[in-house]
Every structure is written in C-alpha cells, then in structure tokens.
C-alpha cells in the first residue's frame, strides 16, 4: 500500500477505535443513568416503575411535613391537585423547601407506593418553578377539564 494511504488508514483506525469505545461507554452510561419524571397522578395510576431510579415532583401539601424527633428523617406529600404521593427523605432539605412550593425529588418508588428520595432538588429562586412540575400541574388540570 502507498505509505500516505497506510498512514491515513492508521489514523482512521485510531479514530474509529476511540469513537466506538466512547459510543459504547455513552450507551451503557445512558442506560443506567436516565431518570424519567413521573407526576403524582402517573404514580397513583401505577404508571411509574417500582424500585427503579426515577424522579417525582409536585407541590408540597400544606401541613404534610412530618419530622422524626430523633434523627433527620422527614416525610411529606406532593400533589398535582389530583393525586398525592408521600415522599420519605433522610437528610437536610434545601433552603427553599417550603409547604406550598414546587419540588422535584430523585429516588425510588417502594412496594408500598411511597417514594424514597435520595435527593430533594434545590431551587435557588423562590419565583422559579421546576418545568416538570409546571407541566405536571398543567396535565392534571387537563384531565379535570376533559372529564366534566
């Protein structure tokens, strides 16, 4: 083979090897680490998978926040004004966590239908509403309007 072509082939092979490794890595990592968002209604209707890493969110229900008296365990309900889901969390909640605010949590739905959160996402502006929650509320309202 012509030396220049040989060199080109070499370069192309290296690029191909690196790219295919990277694509393999990406595919694998994406499969493991995608977290779908489910609204309280979807969870109540059984659409969300159990024991898989997902995200859930909605408005925190007034007077639903219950704290353990000894440790940092806390539980609260979130709603899209159609259904409620209870979220359990152990740790420190973000500064802007308040009743009546929109939150998004990451974690798993257990067999009792309670959401075990590993992380409650912080928002840094009180006017800011997570887009997922906005959409969940809109969809829940849509269901109401279609039903009458």
């Amino acid at each position: 083979m012509h030396p220049v072509r040989k060199k080109r082939l070499f370069v192309i092979m290296i690029i191909a090897i690196i790219l295919s490794t990277a694509i393999g890595l990406v595919m694998y990592a994406l499969q493991q680490n995608i977290n779908l968002f489910y609204s309280p209604s979807q969870i109540a209707l059984g659409e969300a998978p159990r024991n898989a890493s997902i995200r859930a969110g909605g408005m925190v229900v007034k007077d639903s926040v219950k704290r353990h008296s000894e440790n940092l365990s806390v539980s609260f309900d979130v709603t899209d004004f159609q259904h409620k889901v209870t979220i359990n969390y152990r740790g420190i909640l973000p500064d802007l966590f308040r009743e009546g605010q929109g939150v998004v949590a990451q974690g798993k739905l257990n067999d009792e239908g309670v959401f075990e959160a590993s992380q409650v996402l912080a928002k840094h502006d009180e006017k800011y509403m997570p887009p997922e929650v906005t959409e969940a509320l809109k969809n829940a309202n849509g269901i109401v309007k279609k039903r009458p």
């Binding site: 990277a22 890595l25 493991q32 779908l36 968002f37 990451q106």
Partner: peptide, 14 residues
C-alpha cells in the same frame, strides 16, 4: 418520550 434528567453518574462514568 417524557421528561428525563441525565444524572451526574452518566458524566462521571463516561
């Protein structure tokens, strides 16, 4: 296909 987030583990492992 729905709302998703790609977590930090994706970036770390790739």
């Amino acid at each position: 296909l729905g709302k998703i987030s790609v977590g930090a583990p994706y970036f770390n492992s790739v």
